[in-house]
Amino acid sequence: GSMEQGFLPKGWEVRHAPNGRPFFIDHNTKTTTWEDPRLKIPA
């Protein structure tokens, strides 16, 4: 929902695949990933 959306880094969006699995869109680089960007520790 909109709650989890608010925690994503700037430029990211979460969508759900037809099977219900969430995936993440990085509008900054125009890419998608199954990995939650929030789980990655910034270098």
Rank of each mutant, 00 (worst) to 15 (best):
E4R: 09
S2Y: 13
I25F: 10
R38Y: 05
Q5G: 13
A43E: 12
S2R: 08
L39S: 12
A17N: 07
A17R: 05
D36Q: 02
L39N: 14
L8F: 06
R15S: 08
P22W: 05
E35D: 13
H27S: 07
K30N: 15
P37N: 02
E35G: 04
A43W: 10
L39H: 13
I25T: 04
P22T: 07
H27C: 10
A43H: 10
R15K: 11
E13C: 07
I41N: 14
H27E: 06
A43R: 08
D26K: 01
P22G: 03
G11L: 00
G6Y: 11
K10H: 12
T32E: 08
K40T: 14
T29Q: 06
P9L: 07
N28E: 06
L8C: 09
H16I: 15
W34Y: 08
P22A: 07
H16M: 15
L39K: 14
N19V: 01
E4V: 13
S2F: 13
L8D: 04
Q5S: 11
L39Q: 13
N19L: 01
G1H: 11
T31D: 04
M3S: 11
H16D: 07
K30L: 08
L39D: 12
R21V: 10
F24S: 00
G20L: 01
N28M: 06
P9H: 05
R15E: 06
P37Y: 01
W12Q: 02
D36G: 01
F24D: 02
T33W: 08
L39T: 13
L39Y: 11
A43Q: 13
K40H: 15
G11K: 01
D36L: 01
V14F: 03
Q5A: 11
D36M: 02
T31Q: 08
M3T: 11
E35R: 09
T33F: 06
M3A: 13
E35T: 08
I41V: 14
F7H: 15
K10N: 11
I25K: 04
K10I: 12
P22N: 05
F7V: 15
H27P: 05
I25H: 04
G1L: 13
V14T: 04
M3F: 13
W12L: 01
D26E: 03
E4T: 12
H27V: 08
K40E: 11
H27L: 08
E13R: 00
K30T: 06
N28Q: 06
T32I: 15
P22K: 08
S2K: 11
T31Y: 07
P9I: 05
S2N: 12
V14R: 05
T31G: 03
T33I: 06
D36I: 01
M3K: 13
M3E: 11
T29R: 06
R21P: 05
N19P: 02
E35Q: 10
G20Q: 04
V14Q: 10
G1Q: 10
P9Y: 05
A17V: 06
T31C: 13
E13T: 04
P37V: 03
P18V: 09
W34M: 05
I41R: 12
G20T: 07
T32Y: 14
G1R: 03
M3Y: 13
W12I: 03
T31R: 09
G1M: 13
N19C: 06
F23N: 04
N19K: 01
P37F: 01
F24L: 03
F24P: 03
S2Q: 14
E35L: 14
R15T: 07
A17K: 06
G1I: 12
W34L: 07
R38E: 04
A17D: 14
V14D: 02
G11Q: 02
A43K: 10
I25A: 02
W12K: 00
K10Q: 14
A43I: 12
A17E: 09
T31K: 07
K30H: 15
W12H: 02
G1D: 13
E13H: 01
P9K: 04
M3V: 13
G11W: 03
E35Y: 09
P42I: 10
T29F: 04
W12P: 00
K40G: 13
W12T: 02
H16Y: 15
D26Q: 01
G20I: 01
N28L: 07
N19W: 04
F7P: 15
P9R: 03
W34V: 04
D36P: 07
N19S: 10
P37L: 01
W34Q: 03
P42L: 09
N28G: 04
N19T: 05
R38P: 04
F7T: 15
E35N: 09
L39M: 11
N19F: 01
P18E: 10
P42R: 06
H27R: 04
T32R: 09
